[in-house]
Simulated scan of single mutants.
Amino acid sequence: MAAGLGTRFGKMTETMPKGFVEVGGKSMIERSVETLIACGIEKIIIGTGYRKEKYEDLQKKYPQIETCFSPKYAETNSMYTLWNTRNQIGNDGFLLLESDLIFEEKAIRALLESPWEDIMLISSVTKFQDQYYVESDADNILTACSVIKEEIEAKGELVGIHKLSDSFYRKMCVEYEKIVDDKPKLGYEYMLLSMSKEVSPVYVLKIDRLQWYEIDDEQDLKYAEENIINNI
């Protein structure tokens, strides 16, 4: 998911999308692409919007990449971007990632190796700001999410990497089409929660001590370069 404006980076994203912000000398998007390829992924669809040409140029270096432009990127959110890619995804199950992440390869391998088909990956609390907490029941099924830890019985923090089956995603798209006009700015994580409660369970997979970070602004970038990137 790489359609966002990245406004919290200020001048850094005036000429490029935030996925191209470099951490430890390499852009976040290239780090993700190379990790996926190392794990055997052969098709990578990037849902683009702001500065889409940067991602289109990346196809020259990585032939595994396809792009899917969302012309409504400025007025929508991640669920719309995900829904917009439905024709290119076809009938495949897939991994869903955000473009502003750095992470260990074991995050991808754990999802690929899990017998669960529909998974939200979480870790112990890692971020010093903008945390998104996740609750699950005794069967490891997603039951609640919140940016306020005290509102739920938090089991960990959302990483921003998921695994979804074709059947689940198709149901998800059907449900979203019912509300797309009313909720164009819906985040996909809220759709996953709704689906898990009402349609089909989403399992929560926790990896303790996972090295990862979501980088939303210059403060995050500074923290990631000082505390995270050398451990990945």
Results as ranks from 00 to 15, higher is better:
residue 1 M to W: 09
residue 3 A to D: 00
residue 8 R to I: 04
residue 16 M to W: 07
residue 25 G to I: 12
residue 29 I to M: 02
residue 30 E to H: 07
residue 45 I to D: 04
residue 49 G to W: 00
residue 52 K to H: 05
residue 53 E to P: 01
residue 53 E to S: 04
residue 57 D to V: 02
residue 58 L to I: 01
residue 58 L to A: 01
residue 61 K to D: 00
residue 61 K to R: 09
residue 67 T to C: 11
residue 68 C to N: 06
residue 72 K to H: 02
residue 73 Y to G: 00
residue 74 A to C: 04
residue 74 A to D: 12
residue 78 S to H: 01
residue 79 M to L: 13
residue 80 Y to E: 00
residue 84 N to F: 01
residue 86 R to I: 09
residue 89 I to W: 10
residue 91 N to Q: 14
residue 97 L to N: 01
residue 106 K to T: 13
residue 107 A to T: 06
residue 108 I to S: 06
residue 108 I to A: 11
residue 113 E to W: 10
residue 113 E to I: 04
residue 113 E to F: 08
residue 115 P to L: 11
residue 115 P to Q: 08
residue 116 W to G: 08
residue 118 D to C: 05
residue 124 S to N: 14
residue 126 T to C: 14
residue 128 F to M: 10
residue 130 D to A: 08
residue 132 Y to Q: 10
residue 132 Y to T: 07
residue 133 Y to E: 03
residue 136 S to A: 15
residue 148 I to F: 12
residue 159 V to A: 07
residue 159 V to C: 07
residue 162 H to Y: 13
residue 169 Y to N: 09
residue 170 R to E: 11
residue 174 V to H: 10
residue 180 V to C: 02
residue 182 D to R: 05
residue 183 K to N: 02
residue 189 E to L: 09
residue 193 L to T: 05
residue 194 S to D: 14
residue 196 S to G: 04
residue 205 L to S: 11
residue 209 R to H: 15
residue 213 Y to W: 05
residue 215 I to K: 08
residue 215 I to M: 13
residue 219 Q to R: 15
residue 220 D to C: 13
residue 222 K to R: 15
residue 225 E to R: 12
residue 226 E to Y: 13
residue 230 N to Q: 13
residue 230 N to K: 14
